[in-house]
Design a protein around this nucleic acid. Structure first.
Lengths: 222, 222
DNA sequence: ATCGTAATGCGACATGAGTCGCATTACGAG
DNA sequence: CTCGTAATGCGACTCATGTCGCATTACGAT
């Protein structure tokens, strides 16, 4: 259901009255799984520039027209693959110390994206997602989910009395990881372990100083 | 010359022996200026997805084949437009206080990107640049230049004794602005003035704590 | 087991991106 | 002023992307 919403909510401008989930079981589900797997494999191998609907069709064994109908194009394929990826949980550290936890987290991000084996897939996926509105929406949801999950680290620190009450956990997470993503996807600068450590330390310091106490309202935006 | 290097250095894999600058004056310069202007206008209006070589050709009055020959495609057009944009200087605050200076800087970023008049152009340009290797290279150069320029703010703070000697000014700038760019171009979250302020404060705090001093083992200052 | 219907498979078609060879123009040197 | 050459203009061509209508398959319910 969650998976459907991303697609119907973002892509196709053509098919307007479309019964929500008339036939979710069996073949359709298999087709989707095959397509998602093929999309991930293709985007990893070819990069987001070389990602082609026809290649995904060939690899997945699903016809080209079907892909265009259900996913609307490369955009939707990437968005759906990203949505599917968001379900996989992230390992949460719990060392009893905020700074250590944040260091583990940024270290994990660093490891994943710089690993020659693991890195290319999420890198290509995120780059691809930035290209279209559908992908951007999926990316937004993806990171919103991650922030919510990882914010627990900060919330535990609040419980321990390490951080002031009212601290916005998601904001702490953003502060810690933003410098990494900034280098990876905006400025294009190389990522090193020292940067990951500094970002975590800076976030911990700012959080302890009470810079991330939240305002009552929680804005959201498509 | 600078402008040539970006193009020849990044895009076309085809024309290898190419005399550096055989005929830089007159018409070629005019053509380039027209094309850059047309590219900026197009990418602002249509977004980076709707950016077409033919549209740029039509608007600039330059033939399609010429654009493909000199710029290699949409990638090169975006990269060149970005390179041209990097020349425009950024207003540097000098309040005598690091935190205030950083707040001004993040405020400026916030203002530019959220202004409905000014924002769309750099937003679309940066998004477009992330799509190709040529654009990514141009983006890297663009931000490297910006970091170098704005780092002066931190260096003055070092001179004043406000920051420890050996502080990496560029790193301070990155720390202050990364959360903004992260939201704008990665997580896709809305940007507000409070975020800009917090990012600046957090960077100032971390810088004062000495988190951004470069390692002594590296006598290499880029 | 059988039937109605949605989803998929299929191939032909339209469209725009990108390329190529050649004619023409304009720069820069003598 | 004249000439050689690089840069541009020009149009036709190829080809992949994306679309459309129809045939076929498989799901879900009776």
């Amino acid at each position: 259901m969650r998976l459907e919403s991303t697609l119907t909510g973002t892509a196709n401008p053509a098919p307007p009255p479309h019964t929500p989930t008339p036939r979710p079981g069996g073949r359709s589900a298999r087709v989707r799984a095959d397509v998602v797997a093929a999309t991930l494999a293709e985007v990893t191998e070819k990069g987001y520039d070389g990602l082609t609907v026809e290649a995904v069709a060939a690899r997945s064994g699903v016809h080209k027209a079907t892909l265009y109908r259900r996913w609307g194009g490369v955009d939707g394929l990437v968005a759906d693959a990203l949505t599917a990826s968001a379900d996989q949980p992230w390992p949460l550290p719990d060392t009893g110390d905020l700074q250590q936890d944040l260091r583990r987290i940024t270290q994990e991000v660093f490891d994943v994206f710089t690993d020659p084996e693991l890195g290319p897939t999420p890198t290509a996926l995120i780059s691809a997602a930035q290209r279209s509105d559908a992908g951007a929406a999926a990316l937004h949801d993806f990171f919103a989910t991650r922030h919510r999950q990882v914010a627990e680290v900060a919330e535990r620190a609040v419980t321990r009395g390490e951080l002031p009450v009212g601290t916005d956990g998601a904001e702490v997470v953003r502060a810690a990881t933003a410098p990494l993503y900034y280098r990876l996807f905006v400025s294009g600068e190389p990522l090193d372990a020292r940067t990951a450590e500094r970002a975590a330390d800076a976030a911990a310091l700012a959080a302890r100083a009470g810079l991330f106490t939240s305002v009552p309202e929680a804005p959201d935006h498509p």
